[in-house]
């Protein structure tokens, strides 16, 4: 029994170390860049530029950076940006849903091509699903929950 459990536990631990090292490698530098951008008021410019679209999902303009990082790189890079933003539970949940649906698009659309789903279609379907989910949560679910 013990021997049979040891192997999967070992693989799980190895994967954890790999992912955690990846997290450190990606999240820390991204956070630092965001902090510097914030210091020089670059974040403010990006935020006011993207605020109208972001408002549909109830997210502040600054969150656009996290979305862009998540869409084109991966969830971990987005977390680097989220760490540097002051967000409440509702905002983090909406951001998480959008990023959960739509992340790492260049790589994952390439993987999905093997199912016969063309990359541009998968790309736009995921963006559409993410935006729909964000609007749905902001205007219906969270209103309904009275948060």
């Amino acid at each position: 029994m013990f021997n049979e459990l040891a192997q999967p536990v070992k693989i799980g631990l190895q994967k954890s170390v790999q992912i955690l090292w990846l997290l450190v490698k990606i999240i820390t530098p991204v956070s630092c860049v965001i902090v510097v951008m914030d210091y020089f008021n670059i974040m403010e410019a990006i935020a006011s530029f993207s605020a109208p679209v972001m408002a549909l999902t109830g997210l502040p303009g600054e969150a656009a950076i996290a979305l862009a990082l998540g869409f084109f790189l991966n969830i971990y890079a987005a977390i680097g940006a989220i760490n540097a933003l002051p967000l409440g539970t509702q905002e983090i949940t909406i951001l998480a849903v959008i990023l959960g649906i739509s992340h790492e698009l260049p790589i994952e659309t390439a993987i999905c091509r093997h199912t016969g789903l063309r990359a541009p279609i998968s790309f736009f379907l995921r963006l559409a699903a993410a935006l729909t989910a964000g609007i749905f949560l902001n205007h219906i679910i969270f209103k309904f929950m009275g948060v």
């Binding site: 997290l23 820390t28 956070s31 630092c32 902090v35 510097v36 977390i79 760490n83 540097a84």
Partner: peptide, 10 residues
């Protein structure tokens, strides 16, 4: 804000 906060998050 950059290093310590992200390490705590991790």
């Amino acid at each position: 804000e950059g290093i310590i906060k992200s390490l705590l998050g991790i």
